[in-house]
Computed example of a mutant assay.
Amino acid sequence: MENALALIKERLEARQTLTALTPKQAWDQALDQEIADLPLETTLTLRAAEAALIALRSGLHLLNDSLDASHSQSQEIEDDATGAYWHGIMHRMEQDYSNANYWFSQAGAHPAMEKLQARVADWIQHSVVLGDLPDGRVRDALLLMKQQVRWNPNAFTSMVALQESGAISEETRSAIEYVQHLELQELFNYTYEAAQQVLNA
């Protein structure tokens, strides 16, 4: 099982394109089935241990752009902060923004958000992206993002909603997709490490 999980993780990390803000179909249908078939089991009887493995499957499905499959997993662990965070991202990707914000509130100050905020601020600080973007709401929001102390998933949801509404230039899409990429990476890193602790227990 460890080898199968490692291979799936490797394939997802090797994607050449960033995840779309609103994916329309699974990136790799065959991979989606492999994720579903992963025998993620633990001898631990703790609810938290079970939740960590379900969150891992939810995250893998979402990294594969499979919204429905991810949703079915995150719904099983609605009382878990990591499950709630994956749940929120999934709803944001399907453009159900109010529902996304509800689940982000359930996730609270998730531990992955601290590293995410640091990475996003560093990227904005050291990237040429701001100079390439047209003046406007997205550029202003990124500047605020660089200065904020904590990651604000609701503010990012507003940025995604603005982009997907068609009210702003397509020039900003790649910057927003990259921020989402950093978010997915940090949440997955946290989820994967938590699941590894369970699998190795």
Rank of each mutant, 00 (worst) to 15 (best):
E2I: 07
A4E: 14
I8V: 11
R11Y: 06
E13Y: 10
Q16V: 12
T17V: 09
L18D: 03
T19A: 08
T19R: 08
A20K: 14
A20V: 14
L21M: 05
T22Y: 14
T22C: 11
K24D: 13
Q29W: 06
L31H: 11
D32H: 05
D32K: 07
Q33W: 10
I35Y: 05
T42W: 07
L46Q: 10
A48H: 02
E50Y: 03
A51W: 00
A51V: 01
A51D: 08
A52C: 07
L53D: 14
A55L: 05
S58G: 11
S58Y: 02
S58P: 03
G59M: 09
H61I: 11
N64R: 13
L67Y: 09
D68C: 02
D68S: 13
A69N: 12
Q73W: 15
Q73G: 07
S74R: 15
S74Y: 15
E76A: 09
E76I: 02
E78N: 09
A84F: 09
Y85H: 13
I89K: 06
R92E: 15
E94C: 02
Q95S: 05
N101P: 04
W103A: 06
S105C: 06
H110I: 12
M113I: 03
E114Y: 10
K115P: 05
L116G: 09
L116K: 12
A118H: 13
V120E: 01
S127E: 03
V128F: 03
V129H: 04
V129W: 07
G131I: 12
D132V: 08
P134M: 15
G136V: 14
R137K: 13
R137G: 03
D140M: 11
D140S: 12
L143C: 10
L144R: 14
M145V: 06
P153D: 04
S158G: 10
V160H: 01
A161G: 13
L162F: 00
L162Y: 00
L162G: 00
S165M: 02
G166A: 06
A167I: 00
A167L: 03
E170G: 01
E171F: 03
E171G: 00
R173Y: 02
S174R: 00
A175H: 01
A175E: 02
A175C: 03
I176T: 08
E177V: 00
E177T: 00
Y178A: 00
Y178K: 00
L184Y: 07
L184C: 04
Q185F: 03
L187R: 02
A195T: 05
A195C: 07
Q196Y: 06
Q196P: 01
V198E: 01
A201Y: 12
A201P: 01
